[in-house]
Design a protein around this nucleic acid. Sequence first.
DNA 1: CTGAAAGCGCTAACAT
DNA 2: ATGTTAGCGCTTTCAG
Lengths: 357, 357
Amino acid sequence: MAKKTKPVGIKDVAKLANVSISTVSNVLNGSKMVSAGLQERVMQAVDELNYEVNLVARGLKSGKTNTIAVIVPSITSVFFPPLLKSIQDAANREGYSINVFGTSGSLEKEKKYIQTLKSQWIDGILLSSCFDTSDSSAGKYIEYLSTLNTNGTPIPLICLESAISSNLDAVIVDDMNGLKTATEHLISLGRKTIAYIAAPSSFSMGKSRRDGYLTALAVHQMPINPQLIIEGDYTPASGYQCMKELLKRGLSIDAAAAGNDQMAIGAMRAILDAGLEIPGDIAVTGYNDNFPASLVQPSLTTIHVPKEDMGKTAFELFLRRLNDPEASHIHLCLNGSLVVRSSTDPDAKTDWNLQDW
Amino acid sequence: MAKKTKPVGIKDVAKLANVSISTVSNVLNGSKMVSAGLQERVMQAVDELNYEVNLVARGLKSGKTNTIAVIVPSITSVFFPPLLKSIQDAANREGYSINVFGTSGSLEKEKKYIQTLKSQWIDGILLSSCFDTSDSSAGKYIEYLSTLNTNGTPIPLICLESAISSNLDAVIVDDMNGLKTATEHLISLGRKTIAYIAAPSSFSMGKSRRDGYLTALAVHQMPINPQLIIEGDYTPASGYQCMKELLKRGLSIDAAAAGNDQMAIGAMRAILDAGLEIPGDIAVTGYNDNFPASLVQPSLTTIHVPKEDMGKTAFELFLRRLNDPEASHIHLCLNGSLVVRSSTDPDAKTDWNLQDW
DNA sequence: CTGAAAGCGCTAACAT
DNA sequence: ATGTTAGCGCTTTCAG
């Protein structure tokens, strides 16, 4: 048990192989030509001593830690695990580790994490920020983010989900069209009074989705009634409350779109609790297509968002910026697609998603 | 944009404050008494220059990186996100970051990650291993794990979920009693032919749960029929297949316990698809109490496992071993508790979990 | 109480 | 092609 072994370093290898330490370094990194004979000797010594490079020391020297940080509002919220997984997979393929941080929606924590990260010489940050674009200090924060740097070099920062600024790279989803599609689906069903349970409008994501809803109504010349719009906070519980409130308003709604699946599902519970039928009385749509959407009864029609793509793409963007800090910033916009289930179509097949959870 | 600023180091602070660098280090770390006057001067210089310690350099010197690795079979499987969250929270409170690794159930990857971790001078590892205790090389792997070390010092390793060896610390759940409780619940309902959809028995977890099922039957003098036992692979899809197979065997089962919630839910789908009723024809229990258990229709009776406690406790165990490498190894066993829902009791309230996802 | 100096383990000029 | 050596930025003896 627990014995202190003296660590074997590059110089031990050098000694055993009877070469200089730089030669060892060179064969290990392939940074310079080394004769086959020495190469052989070195590798043998490495094997024999069971030598492993010290990445901390290498990091100090090279300024690269091969670690990126991923900061998200929540680790447990169903949207993020698949995203984290895809980031991890992409990162590992390139030899990077990921440091995960959940901010619980606290901008305070977010900033604290970023600050610490700078000291850690992290190679890059993938950030799904929980900061409020309408905040008065927004400009300052954006400025801060876009000039982040450790060790004198800028830290590549990729925004996830919301494009904070044109000075920052981002992978986003076409939320506007996503919610427009969902709403139009409801319209195509002949629904006349369509409520909207909004995602917080202080975030750009929330704004875009709301715009999608409004646009759909406008395009189809349907009246816009502010009474039909109510704002939740992403959680199923808030969706539940919002729907209860909407029902109380007595507007005889016959459909509801929601800013995410969680709120849609919460709303469904409220509808069911009120003794109403879905979709008979009220049809419901969500957004994101997280796995619970297929599990609830009735299953939820929603907009499928390619979370796997997002992670992969975000990591690629990170690599791109790492290799070319001066490259012009891009906002990569991914598209969602409508998935019809029984919350809008009673005849839809209701297969449970039996794979991803 | 992207300007290269020269990093400010401890010597810059020293110069500005007109003291030696060791004095700066001393005030920053409180490692030695420094006169109030100098302390003041140093802090002022730190502020002025916006100095931040370089954790990589400190790491190289001190051998501590303040980062722990968490290795789990899956990031997306519903059981793990809450666990990861609780670990993260506990770790952050103590100034640690967590590096997350999902192995996709591949022991190969697991080993590779651990190997890399050694080079990274990680301070500790929390591991939910996917290794097969019945494997012939089991002994070697355990030996390997219990002698892990970086930089000549042992790396604290805490096992999550399954206690791999008495030479290793672990936070586990009383799976035996958990499944015994679930099975006895079914028995108390008067069910006579209780099937068991097992978790892989090559893992200690799977063995304990199966033992729980068998023990319950034995205690109540019920016959044990191997035909009633079938093994899945944790996924809902496997639960679905297992139940289809069970149904095909024509044993007229009137209840089924499963080794986890996912398989239970998959099995429910198969039962429903076969035109049978739950719990009328077949009552079903799961294990873990992940949030989907409350969402499906009917909602799933299951054993609640305290994932939050697990994470917190695991981190505490890590700290304990870090501070006392020679401490005797402990296996901390947490208890689950029965949560009755409508898959066994039609009158149970079926509130959806509207909080944790 | 304060400072000078020796590395932590490695990489990359620079010399040979 | 190989070796020598100077640091990366910090902590920590060890003198003063």
